[in-house]
Write a protein that binds this DNA or RNA. Structure first.
Length: 740
DNA sequence: TCAGTGCTG
């Protein structure tokens, strides 16, 4: 195809997009106001067209147009598409930037990027002086980084002196979202105009089931029901592919086995109404699946065969499968939620929100009208499913976010303009952790260490261990380890029991090879063994290791190494010496980052955490320390898993002396003391007033009594009441001594 | 006594 004909075809295509008729008015709207909310369903063309319109209107004269996406693939594929439409080489006028992949140049004026990338840019250039327009896309997904960007951009303009300082031309901000909650967005941005673009999707009829009601939230009986319904659709509905939503790998494998078993016994001569369907092709789909296997999903099925994809939430936003006409929705999802009791993020199965259910249904209406079968009852919909998914910022650990904000000069992180405020205790917990890691001081100011820490794309504790390693000259141990701990799980554990045994055996052998008794050392050893192997991918396959995860660990390690080198050139790093063996050196470094995760043997095999909560935890059976008796009184651990019990995973033994001096820091401050640092002072009345205000925003009918009850319950749950009592007692003592 | 939804710098 010649260049001009390709241009013609894409240009013609883009003229048929719903957005095209609004071109002039849209450009006018962007020019006419600082903030603009643009709404439109999938298929309206806003992501690809709006930047081009603004470019044509000459809005790149002074600076770039930056468009953020919550996901890497989206940023890359959209940039490719737009470069093609604008007839330019990708990386010149149109480019993209994601982690590990910067495809931009001096000429780039339309830049697609992940929201995390723009946040990094703000750290280096707080007024975004290179941009004339910033477009936040997919805001309705409410990703953590997008939410932070929203607040930062709002804040930039609430202080005019600051927003223009360092800028020679005005900045325009466009916020793009699906039609949900646009009034809220507009109100948040000072009542800015809203521009609505009609979408281009097909109707999807939804039906409710009879099997899963509000009482079944805890059970996993829905797998069977999902299978039954998929077969029902297969034997009674016209041609068209099926997409089933479940929560995780093991469920998907189970469902596929069941489906396969049942589909085999269908007599297609009599049972299937539409005689053009004569078979069922069952395809699992989840994130940790090998990429080439994932690709099979996109191939059209053989003629007369119906495709049935059984997927996790990956199929809700990240991947689009053509030809889907039927959705089977289990109504559940796995979600990472912050748990105050263990002070960590924990993965759990929860009911999806109504808006999420609608998004799942919408996957059936992309090319023609579709049907969505929900296995849960109308009652479940009404009683157990929330209206909207709780945004990430209200669900996850905020430690890294708070450090980023502090480094951006946002001292009062509680009064930062959040679209939805995180719970105050989550913010206080983050402050407490940063204080414990010496990233901020008692007054909440970022320390020199904190300024170094913010540069690393790692959890703060891990960064601290890396920095300790660097000052002790053993970064070659800590950098690979940090990389291994920040990529997805690397150990493959298949569903088939035979193969499971084989995999477990290989993994145990790897642990023994690294000296045993230390799961951190095993990870390091896997990294080193694979890296030095002649055929790393074959090595992985042989040892039941995810090659893709290891490859990304290699890239992360390189990136971390570069950051460390850059910082070492810029600043003076402390140099320490240590005489002792390598294993002790390694573990001592780990202790500086994991002293918040110390546990001590309590009774039998049960350990007790030292973080003030004193939770009882067990060593997970996958650990090389499971079943080890000797000399195991103190351990540190990387993460917590809550299933039948509370398990700690990735564990290694330490000596009490190594953390003795660090542990007091865990009890030095309590959240209430920190809250008086973060804001002026908090009294009971204020706390109740504040809670009432927050609750009123969400649910107007909630009374103050409810809040008091809720506070009491929460205090009991998190043993905050004890901390508060201690704090009040100390405060009283201070006042008394002052009076004397 | 037993397990890793999905993103991201």
């Amino acid at each position: 195809m010649s260049k001009s004909s390709r241009w013609d075809s894409t240009e013609n295509e883009s003229k048929h997009l719903p957005i095209y008729r609004h071109k002039a008015k849209l450009v006018q709207a962007v020019e006419g106001s600082t903030f603009l909310v643009v709404t439109g369903e999938t298929g309206s063309g806003k992501t690809t067209q709006l930047p081009q319109y603004l470019h044509q209107a000459g809005m790149c004269r002074n600076g770039k147009i930056g468009i953020t996406q919550p996901r890497r693939v989206a940023a890359i594929t959209v940039a490719q598409r737009v470069a093609q439409e604008m007839q330019c080489t990708l990386g010149r006028e149109v480019g993209y930037q994601v982690r590990f992949d910067d495809c931009t140049s001096q000429d780039t004026v339309v830049k697609y990027m992940t929201d995390g990338c723009l946040l990094r840019e703000i750290l280096a250039d707080p007024v975004l002086s290179q941009y004339s327009v910033v477009i936040l896309d997919e805001v309705h997904e409410r990703s953590l980084n997008t939410d932070i960007l929203l607040g930062l951009l709002k804040k930039m303009f609430s202080d005019p002196a600051k927003s223009t300082k360092g800028r020679s031309f005005p900045l325009k901000v466009v916020v793009m979202s699906a039609t949900l909650e646009t009034d809220k967005l507009s109100a948040f941005l000072g009542g800015c105009p809203v521009f609505a673009i009609p979408g281009r999707t097909f109707p999807v009829t939804c039906t409710f089931g009879t099997a899963v009601g509000p009482k079944d939230v805890e059970s996993t009986g829905y797998v069977k029901e999902v299978v039954r319904m998929a077969l029902d659709v297969h034997t009674s509905e016209l041609a068209g592919d099926i997409l089933v939503f479940l929560t995780g790998q093991s469920e998907i494998e189970r469902a596929c086995d069941l489906l396969f078993e049942k589909a085999e016994s269908i007599d297609y001569r009599y049972d299937v109404q539409d005689q053009t369907v004569e078979g069922l092709l069952i395809l699992p789909l989840y994130g940790s699946m090998p990429t080439d296997q994932q690709r099979q999903i996109f191939q059209p099925p053989p003629s007369r065969i119906r495709k049935c994809v059984v997927a996790t939430n990956i199929a809700a936003t990240s991947l689009t499968i053509n030809g889907i006409k039927y959705i089977i929705d289990s109504g559940f999802v796995k979600q990472l939620n912050h748990n105050s009791r263990v002070g960590m993020d924990i993965l759990e199965v929860v009911p999806i929100s109504k808006s999420e259910a609608e998004q799942r249904a919408g996957r059936a209406g992309r090319t023609s009208a579709g049907k969505c079968f929900r296995i849960y009852t109308k009652e479940f919909w009404e009683k157990s499913m929330p209206e909207y998914t709780v945004p990430e910022i209200q669900r996850t650990s905020l430690t890294a976010v708070v450090l980023t904000l502090k480094c951006l000069g946002v001292h009062d992180v509680i009064r930062f303009p959040y679209l939805d405020c995180p719970e105050e205790r989550f913010l206080l917990e983050a402050l407490k952790q940063l204080y414990q890691f010496d990233a901020i001081d008692r007054r909440g100011k970022v320390t020199q260490l904190g300024e170094l820490m913010v540069e690393f794309p790692l959890q703060p504790g891990l960064t601290r261990a890396v920095l300790k390693g660097s000052s002790l000259g053993c970064q070659d141990l800590l950098l690979p380890l940090a990389a291994m701990l920040s990529v997805e799980n690397i150990f493959i554990r298949p569903g088939n029991p035979e193969k499971q045994k084989e995999a477990d055996k290989k993994h145990r052998a790897l642990a023994t090879k690294s000296g045993g008794m230390n799961d951190f050392a095993t990870l390091l050893s896997v990294f080193q063994l694979c890296k030095s192997s002649d055929r790393p991918s074959a090595w992985c396959k042989d040892n039941w290791i995810h090659w893709r995860a290891l490859k990304s660990a290699f890239s992360v390690e390189t990136q971390l190494r570069e950051i460390l080198l850059r910082l070492q050139q810029k600043r003076d790093f402390p140099v320490e010496t240590f005489d002792g063996n390598k294993s002790e050196l390694f573990r001592r470094c780990l202790c500086t980052g994991y002293f918040t995760n110390v546990a001590r043997r309590s009774v039998g095999k049960v350990f007790c955490t030292m973080d003030g909560n004193g939770s009882m935890v067990n060593i997970h059976p996958s650990s090389s320390l499971f079943d080890q008796e000797a000399d195991l009184n103190w351990v540190i651990f990387h993460d917590v898993l809550v299933t039948s019990r509370v398990y700690i995973r990735t564990v290694c033994p330490i000596r009490y002396e190594w953390v003795k001096d660090l542990l007091p820091k865990l009890h030095e401050v309590d959240v209430y003391e920190l809250s008086s640092v973060a804001r002026q002072e908090v009294t009971d009345e204020e706390m109740i007033k504040w809670e009432t205000r927050e609750a009123a925003k969400r649910q107007p009918e909630v009374s103050t009594e409810d809040i008091v009850k809720k506070l009491e319950k929460r205090n009991n749950e998190t043993s905050v009441s004890d901390a508060r009592a201690r704090y009040l007692q100390r405060k009283q003592q201070r006042q008394q001594s002052k009076a004397l």
